[in-house]
Design a protein around this nucleic acid. Structure first.
Lengths: 202, 202
DNA sequence: GTCTATATTGAGATAGAC
DNA sequence: GTCTATCTCAATATAGAC
């Protein structure tokens, strides 16, 4: 038996805390929230919360992992075609524009975790690589079938998509009127195969 | 007389401090440097440094403004054509990859300044708008002349360029092997007008 | 204008009771 | 497992001497 009752219960509680923390950050924003504030919000003392996560940074990483887990459900399961990838990605981005606090937490941590000794460094490296891998595969297939421009290598395009969405988050945090999803979608449009036009020569 | 000697000297000293601070951050990185560390680096006490800038955030904004001032010199003067814009932009990006500390300072502050009450909020709004305006104008002219794809509106393209470069900074901070300039240049390539091909119909 | 010294604050971490 | 209380540290900001 790998799990005794109490252990399983501890895990369940952890999950519950993360879900509630995510809700609270989504609803009330982040603004550099302290462990104390999150503890209040989820109905624990600061020490009580840290009992589960050890440190502030570990708590934040786990919150972001929980978010990823939920976002994964916004994609179609299974092997991805370009159209589904586009739909799923835009769905996630549209959802993000409902939860500025989560976007802020993500962006902050992304910068801080650039230090190789930061507890979130591995998380960002792996997440980043995974997303690019999914994009690269989907884009490459689409390029082979002529459903996407092949002027630029698939791996570079994957990086550009990721950069566009991360960068749009910064623009949107600064000015919430910006339409993140529409702007990222413009990049998809740019990559649609060139329609054959009678006057293509100008 | 708007300036007495002592006032002009104060200004000169400020400039000198900013230039040195920028050099130090470029050379030694940022890593959330404290006012104290920057003060040491420029040869002043912490209080001495704050005497000139009032607060930490104001100091950081001024450092970034000084950086912008220097970067402006990396562009050709005068009205910009697409090719010069591209050259200048890539030149700035290539320079950035020599100064990770400056990129980190910029990225950190960009997130923190999303709060409208943050002392750097206005700076980022204005800088952001200015860059987009330059891009929009240049792109629009290029689109009118057929030197750039007009599948996507110039303002949206301007946002995409900005997002791509900001987003690539995040990727590069996490993994310095990434080639920021080459990736952003790929976006320029994508936008070059479509060459007329014999087999355009596939 | 610059320094030393100190006030103040804020936060995360930890000890120990229950 | 959870709380209260406390420790510790880091950092900015400020007062006041020179």
């Amino acid at each position: 038996m790998a799990k005794r009752g109490s252990y399983a219960k501890g895990v369940a509680k952890r999950e519950e805390i993360l879900t509630r923390a995510l809700e609270v950050i989504a609803r009330e924003g982040f603004r550099g929230a302290s462990v104390r504030e999150i503890a209040d919000a989820v109905g624990l003392s600061q020490a009580g919360l840290l009992h589960y996560f050890g440190s502030k940074e570990q708590l934040f990483v786990e919150i972001l992992r929980k978010r990823d887990e939920i976002d994964a459900g916004r994609f179609e399961p299974g092997d991805m075609e370009l159209a589904e990838m586009r739909e799923g990605y835009l769905r996630v981005i549209r959802h993000n524009s409902e939860v500025p606090g989560v976007v802020e937490l993500f962006s902050r941590l992304a910068v801080e975790a650039s230090d190789a000794t930061h507890p979130a460094h591995e998380y960002f490296l792996q997440r980043s690589a995974l997303i690019r891998q999914l994009f690269t595969e989907t884009v490459r297939k689409a390029q082979e079938d002529g459903r996407m421009s092949d002027r630029v290598d698939a791996e570079i395009l994957a990086r550009l998509f990721q950069a566009a969405s991360d960068g749009m988050q910064l623009q949107w945090l600064l000015d919430p009127d910006v339409d993140m999803a529409a702007t990222v979608d413009a990049l998809f449009q740019l990559l649609a195969p060139v329609p054959v036009q009678a006057d293509a020569a100008g």
